[in-house]
Design a binder for these strands. Structure first.
Lengths: 227, 227, 227, 227
DNA sequence: AGTTAATCGAGACGGTACGTCGAGTCTTCGA
DNA sequence: TCGAAGACTCGACGTACCGTCTCGATTAACT
């Protein structure tokens, strides 16, 4: 019940398995994706997520993933170009499955009370951030994205931005209802409460509590409301 | 002229070189820090920063640092426990030297106009974030801190928090002048404009411009000012 | 034309490459010897022998062997457990190839004149001991075998004993012809002329000449002949 | 009661500690031997012999010797040039002390019965070869001497040859008594029984027993006696 | 007896090689 | 033809010692 990872992502509706490796090496014949083993793909995702959870990202190796997945190394190198890419896809897949489990009905709540709606969603986000099932891989991916520009952009585009877009919609709705000033850019406004939360999570620069997010909403909305 | 790395850090005034390795291995006798070679320490810092700038953090190896510094590998392993630790100290050292170059006179501006002061400082911060001299190592450290908890805490404690504290002081001053509501927690309030900037930088989730930070200040202060 | 290293060794006819590492480490899965690279094996032998000849045994390193052979270090460690083992196999291989070159026809001469036959063979052995092609690796192996019991036993069993056996046969033949007393143990008797030669070579405790070996044979046979 | 190591060596009568390093480095000022610490010298000998006995020659390191002797590494490098040299001197010292313990009265037995005398001495030599107190360092030195020419020559000159000389004397005495032919070279003749024993010990190429050495003497003397 | 200079214990230093791990490539074999 | 298996080359890891080089603190020979 939060947009961080379980939202149905409209732009990415039930993405089918990629049909070509992320960065097709030029000299190599493209593998034939129609013959790809679905079973191996799943096993690799599971192994990757499990290992990152158990030993952390840096100590998760391709060899270990292959071995635990009961798969040859070549099968990994055939379809992905890097460890980060494997984990990113595995995580996207995990998010999608989580969303599907939740059903397709989730939408950003719009009770008419913007503050209440935001607090609700942010509280759920906090809960999810502390869920160990998501924490290890998400943190690993975020870290990798900081340093690996290509991976970072994919992470943002595929995962982060679609979810932020839901906040944009909700803020636009609030603008129409006169709860937020018309001259406010919702894409920037949402950062006032989302980014502090994100930074505390990423950098451990402060405690993550429901009170904290409530406070953020209160402080931020004060500056966005009409006088 | 920005608190991101060149501020004089009062709690850490001209820190002398660490006298013991960060995580003393239990079985090994502690090296005698009074006999440590200052020359090697400096050369290692320089080599580490240069290499991270040139080839990036993951391709910077201990061997390459040692080789470029003209130092035996063991001299690195004697005093640090990991690549991240070396780079962290090198970066802290760099920050301190930068601060000392600037002279001790830098203080957070307090013209009486809070918005103007904040905008000034945040613009400088943006400039610094885009300075390649700092970008590579800072980004590498931040990424490493996301994944390596101990490193992350040191990074936050030694570097980030002292600088955020300067914002806290400025906001308290504004509270005394009646420009900010008394019931606002300055430590949280500052995140309204600092964290969005940090997130955009870390995750490349949006452009970093002066207009952007100005907007952040405008939006945020609106909610903090007395009605 | 001497039994020291070029004799066809009947007990060891054209030994194929070992199929398992000498001392299989217990925790590691045994490598599959059917997929072993013959090319690498040969290159390693050549590099090892060449290096020992050039810089001596103690300064011959596994890294240097790997590098000169154009082979990864792991490929050496996969199939051998020590430098000595590599060199031993290389030397055994060299001996076998030398024997094969010579053709299979070499037999211990038996002209009926025992003294003459022994002098002939021992003179050839002296020549071989002074041949730099064999000297360096043979000396290195012998030294290593003195200190490393397992290696020493292999050296003796695989190389030394088969050749001594040829002397045993010749002495038995002499016994049948009545040139040597029947109550003499040939395995001990042969040491009277072989061991002094070996010791002078190993310990440099005296010059190695044809006159010397002739003298040895004369002295020794005196005690073995019937009265 | 054997010439192998406990004989008083006339050419080397109670050698005082060397006064200069074996191979004085040309550029370095010669250390002043009058101020040398006798205590350190002794401790180094003891540590070296103990370590070779415990872990073998190759795993005996200079650092370990220094550490166990409670001595700085430089103290070793000041007076010796290599591990082999240290051990050689330590072993020579050990031999001398053993000889002194035995008293100065030991001489090669000369009862008039050459065969009996030789058998007696060779049996004692066998016993000594199997004494673990001597075995490890002696074997280590012999091995090192095979490969390191300089060390080998010192070993032979200082230790081996003086003892062989005792056999020479005994054989000359036998020649005068008419028990050995006059035209026999005693230096070569002694190798007939000494070298086989030495080789079996060095190369483990056969069992070392009293019967064996008795047999050697019988076989060899047969060829040396007058007809 | 006090001075002084060399040796001493200690150990940090620049190096080299170790033996191991994992990356990414390539080959073999079975399904 | 793809996948499991794993041998291959390569590069970096973190460790062990090498032989050199300071450092005080003895310590033994000379004032």
């Amino acid at each position: 019940m939060s947009p961080t990872s379980s939202a149905p992502v409209p732009d990415q509706p039930a993405t089918p398995p990629r049909t070509t490796p992320g960065n097709q090496a030029p000299g190599r014949p493209a593998p034939d994706s129609t013959r790809r083993s679905e079973r191996s793909r799943r096993a690799i995702y599971d192994a990757a997520l499990a290992l990152v959870g158990e030993v952390g990202y840096p100590r998760t190796t391709i060899e270990a993933i292959a071995s635990r997945a009961g798969v040859g190394k070549q099968t990994i190198y055939r379809w992905w170009t890097s460890k980060g890419e494997v984990l990113l896809e595995a995580f996207l897949d995990l998010s999608q499955r989580a969303a599907e489990e939740l059903g397709e009905e989730w939408v950003f709540p719009d009770t008419g009370d913007l503050a209440a709606d935001l607090k609700l969603v942010l509280r759920a986000t906090v809960d999810e951030m502390l869920d160990p099932r998501f924490e290890a891989p998400a943190r690993a991916l975020a870290a990798q994205g900081v340093v690996d520009e290509q991976l970072g952009r994919t992470f943002v585009t595929q995962l982060l931005e679609p979810q932020l877009q839901l906040y944009v919609e909700r803020l636009k709705s609030a603008q129409e209802q006169g709860q937020v000033r018309r001259d406010v850019d919702p894409r920037i406004a949402l950062e006032l409460f989302v980014s502090p939360l994100a930074q505390r999570w990423l950098q451990r620069s402060g405690p993550l509590t429901h009170e904290y997010t409530d406070t953020l909403v209160d402080y931020a909305l004060g500056g966005l409301s009409p006088r």
